[in-house]
Simulated scan of single mutants.
Amino acid sequence: MKLTGRVAEVLLVSGVLAALAVPPAQAAHAPAPARGRDVPLRVASYNIHAGAGMDNVFDLDRQEKALRALHADVIGLEEVDVHWAARSEWRDVAGELAKRLGMQVFFAPIYSVDGREFGVAVLSKYHILKATNHKITRLSTQDPNPAPAPAPGFGEVELRVKGVPLHVYVTHLDYRADPSVRVSQVAETRRIMGRDRGRKILLGDFNATPDAPELAPLWRELTDVEPGKPTFPALNPVQRIDYVAVSRGVAVRGADVPDTLASDHRPIVADVSLRR
């Protein structure tokens, strides 16, 4: 709509008067709008050993208690059974833990065999807007003569945390002493995560220590959240192979490794802030 000169003049004067009506002290001390504040978030990564503790006894009550004690908003889980075997009583471990904790869940299977599944999962207190199970190179444990090949099990969820968009990834890298498969997995992880230029968090069991050469490329784009404690094995841990890593736009406020024997790993938990 085009304003006539007279109408525009009236609106301009009205606007100036309205601005002058605000007392200077009140204007100076008015709180910053909510959209300008960083958003706190607590995230964790936990290899749950298919529901079994350091004693190799399946106990979902014990793992629920350990997870609840983290007070985390988002949790990446590795070694998750969904109707996989007798070792976890053929139960949907991912679904049951999510229900008990009142969280949403996305399960990304690595293996799917006749209705039996094993993989990684994300639990979230925030609504999962979108979820993807990406493929990366794997050396199958289900094949007697495996060869490196693309396989699923690199999970990604898109969240909106108090209005701030966030991509969370969960992974479980190859465990073998030969790092060649992990080298490929790291390259593919960077390629997949590179598609998103927003705020990103990577959770997982990398099966390598932070100074491992095959992990070095990750630290070009991501910051390794250092808790100052080892995570494996859960009893008298000697090395850290479990990770929370964050991109630009995510500030680290602190991290810890809680002492628990609910799995053969200890969890890593981090407090971060999402910058708007």
Score class of each variant (00 low, 15 high):
Gly102Leu: 07
Asp61Val: 12
Gly95Tyr: 01
Ala108Lys: 01
Gly76Ser: 14
Leu129Tyr: 08
Ser88Phe: 00
Gln104Asn: 12
Asp92His: 12
His127Ile: 03
Gly36Tyr: 03
Ala85Gly: 13
Ala94Tyr: 01
Asn47Ser: 14
Ala19Ser: 15
Ala131Trp: 00
Gly76Thr: 04
Val13Ile: 11
Arg100His: 09
Pro31Cys: 05
Gly53Lys: 02
Ile128Thr: 09
Pro31Glu: 06
Leu70Thr: 11
Asp81Thr: 07
Ala85Pro: 09
Val57Phe: 00
Leu60Met: 10
Lys65Ala: 14
Gln104Trp: 07
Arg42Ser: 04
Asp59Ile: 11
Ala108Phe: 01
Ala21Gly: 10
Arg62Ser: 15
Leu20Arg: 05
Ala18Ile: 13
Ala30Ser: 10
Ile48Asn: 02
Pro33Phe: 05
Ile136Leu: 00
Pro23Asp: 12
Val105Tyr: 00
His49Ile: 04
Leu77Cys: 08
Glu89Ile: 06
Val39Ile: 14
Leu60Gln: 08
Phe106Lys: 06
Ile75Ser: 05
Ala98Ile: 07
Ser45Leu: 09
His83Ser: 05
Gly102Met: 07
Val39Met: 05
Asp73Gln: 11
Met103Ile: 07
Glu96Phe: 00
Ala85Asp: 15
Ile110Tyr: 06
Asn56His: 13
Leu17Gly: 13
His71Leu: 04
Glu89Asn: 13
Asp73His: 09
Ala121Gln: 02
Gly102His: 03
Leu41Val: 12
Arg68Thr: 10
Pro109Glu: 07
Tyr126Arg: 11
Leu97Glu: 03
Val80Met: 05
Ala52Phe: 02
Asn133Pro: 11
Asn56Arg: 15
Asp55Trp: 04
Phe106Gln: 08
Gly119Met: 02
Tyr46Phe: 15
Leu77Met: 11
Ala34Ser: 10
Arg42His: 07
Ala52Tyr: 01
Thr132Ala: 09
Val74Gln: 03
Val74Ile: 13
His29Glu: 15
Arg6Tyr: 07
Leu60Arg: 04
His29Trp: 04
Thr132Met: 03
Arg100Tyr: 00
Gly51Ala: 09
Arg37Trp: 09
Ala131Tyr: 02
Glu64Trp: 01
Pro24Lys: 07
Asp92Arg: 11
Ala121Lys: 00
Glu117Tyr: 00
Gln63Met: 05
Gln104Lys: 10
Phe107Met: 10
Val13Gln: 08
Leu17Trp: 04
Glu64Pro: 04
Leu67Trp: 01
Ala25Val: 15
Val74Trp: 01
Gly53Tyr: 02
Leu41Tyr: 05
Ala19Thr: 14
Val43Leu: 05
Gly119Arg: 06
